[in-house]
Design a protein around this nucleic acid. Structure first.
Lengths: 218, 218
DNA sequence: GTCTATATTGTGATAGAC
DNA sequence: GTCTATCACAATATAGAC
């Protein structure tokens, strides 16, 4: 079982602070900030609940630490691929494949982040800086700049239909992330259990790039 | 300002029960069930908070009433279009246009429903029955049956690339709903204010069907 | 039906011994 | 650093007058 980049390592017998943060990650992503209980985090970490306050002082501080960590887990890889010199087709395939794999192992992540952002919209800026350690003004051109060049060149060469880099990213990310964000609903409406949902997403790793690239044909 | 089908009417001077339910809708969709406060609902409704308990007994009952109502607001129209006899292209255009309009007026709805479903996955079944007043076994063929026929016929006639009705629905709904579910993040990363976000979604009402139908070309 | 007042529990947070 | 004990308050819920 390969160790994921930002994935919380199993709370074997690491130091207490790490165990608490790992436990908090699990509880916060599953229940949301408002629904999470400090006592449950302590229990999940196997420590006394006073210790949680010793290390993180308040629930809000802990919540922000978890949010930063979750955001850092979801976005930097995606940003790197979009900003890279890879050809468009390769970008699409890599984004889909890597993100589906990551989301299959972190199923609560999209729902958690979307819910938090709706409840505390001021965290959107925090999220951006967590992605790249930089402010929005720096992230935006990094994300869309290279892509704009490529899409523009391809459109003029007649190899791709014209599309803005914003729509390109939004459409692709939508189709990758939404099925995970809406997973309980998707499973219910399609009559899937966990195994079948996973199988469907695995199949999607090849079907979705084909579908998306088909939409871009001139 | 046209009155929407399931949209809560403004709490002018309706009876208390209605005012409370409207207020609960606003507060629950904005803060989530766990983050909502009964006192805030009472204040929003302009009534004493004892009255909220008089009508709805417990917070959980009220939460379920709101959830049912929100679900009924989002899905029945979509189901009706997918199940109809309209041609595929027309289905795509109608779904996108109607849903974008509805979501522009109910911006917290997708985030609320997705968050609730992640926190209380057992509600997925409740949601299905809220859609059509029927169990999952009845909803599923209604949603996918007609579509499967149409897609199959078109694929054999060579007018559309083959696609399963499940992927057809999932891809389309993803691109329609996700931008609203992730609205604070989309606004931050693209540097949009409310007006520009709305403008972008308005433009999407025509761009997205074109994009989607392009993906289906053989 | 609607209010005031109050009961009851849940939960974040701290003090202080070890 | 880690625990036990406890505080303080927030939040749900109810009793009972009007």
């Amino acid at each position: 079982m390969a160790q994921h980049r930002g994935t919380p390592p199993p709370p074997l017998d690491a130091d207490s602070e790490t165990r608490i943060l790992d436990a908090a990650h699990v509880v916060f992503t599953r229940r949301g900030t408002a629904g999470a209980r400090m006592a449950e985090i302590a229990r999940e970490a196997g420590v006394n609940h006073a210790l949680v306050h010793y290390y993180f002082r308040t629930k809000q501080r802990l919540a922000e630490a978890v949010f930063r960590r979750a955001a850092g887990q979801l976005f930097p890889a995606m940003l790197a691929v979009f900003a890279s010199d890879l050809p468009i087709e390769e970008k699409v395939r890599r984004i889909v494949s890597a993100q589906v794999d990551m989301l299959l192992e972190n199923r609560y992540l999209p729902g958690y982040l979307l819910a938090e952002l709706n409840h505390y919209p001021e965290r959107a800026e925090l999220l951006l800086s967590s992605i790249a350690g930089a402010a929005a003004d720096v992230v935006r051109p990094r994300l869309f700049g290279k892509l704009a060049e490529q899409l523009d060149a391809a459109a003029r060469a007649g190899t791709l239909r014209p599309i803005t880099p914003q729509a390109f990213v939004l459409n692709l990310v939508s189709m990758v992330v939404y099925p995970f964000a809406a997973r309980p609903f998707v499973m219910a409406i399609m009559g899937l259990d966990d195994a079948r949902f996973t199988a469907m997403m695995q199949a999607r790793k090849t079907e979705l790039p084909d579908f998306y690239l088909a939409a871009l044909r001139p």
